[in-house]
């Protein structure tokens, strides 16, 4: 079997699998970095004011959602995988996974930085800490849009 034959008979499932993997991997990278950033900032606060743990946890969780969106897309692709799927379908699914993978990655880091800054609001002016949450959520909008498009793309075209 040469490479062309391999590509035409198995390329579909390889690309689709790669897409699912990237959707999970890239958005997971981003969320891990984002959640980590906020966690570091929050740890400093816990030394002085451990009673703010609950609120800091909310801020820390915010950049975690991108990883979950990627996970959902990965799961949806998983349902469509089939060893005999065509190359075109596989590459299409691969493309469908890119929005949440890439946007999820970058936006989770940006959101993590915003949420980490929100920890400062929590530290100095607890009453207004919800505003820090809202700033961070502004960033999430773009991850949500990417998620919606990935979701529609994965299901839009029937092969």
């Amino acid at each position: 079997m040469n490479f062309t034959e391999f590509l035409s008979s198995y390329g579909g499932v390889v690309f689709a699998g790669l897409g699912a993997a990237l959707a999970v991997i890239l958005s997971g990278f981003g969320s891990a970095i984002g959640v980590g950033l906020v966690g570091q900032a929050a740890s400093g606060l816990m030394i002085e004011e451990p009673q703010k743990f609950g609120k800091s946890l909310v801020l820390q969780l915010l950049p975690g959602t991108q990883g979950l969106y990627g996970f959902v897309i990965g799961l949806l692709v998983l349902g469509q995988l089939d060893a005999g799927m065509g190359l075109a379908q596989g590459m299409y699914i691969f493309a469908a996974c890119l929005p949440i993978g890439l946007v999820g990655w970058v936006s989770a880091i940006a959101q993590g930085k915003t949420a980490a800054a929100g920890i400062a609001i929590l530290a100095k002016n607890e009453e207004h800490s919800t505003k820090g949450i809202i700033y961070a959520v502004m960033v999430e909008t773009y991850a949500l849009l990417a998620f919606v498009i990935s979701l529609i793309l994965v299901n839009a075209v029937a092969f």
Binding site: L75, V148, L151
Partner: peptide, 14 residues
């Protein structure tokens, strides 16, 4: 407003 659908979906899928 597409977030109305997206958040419902992601919660349900998780």
């Amino acid at each position: 407003y597409s977030r109305l659908m997206a958040l419902g979906l992601s919660g349900g899928f998780i």
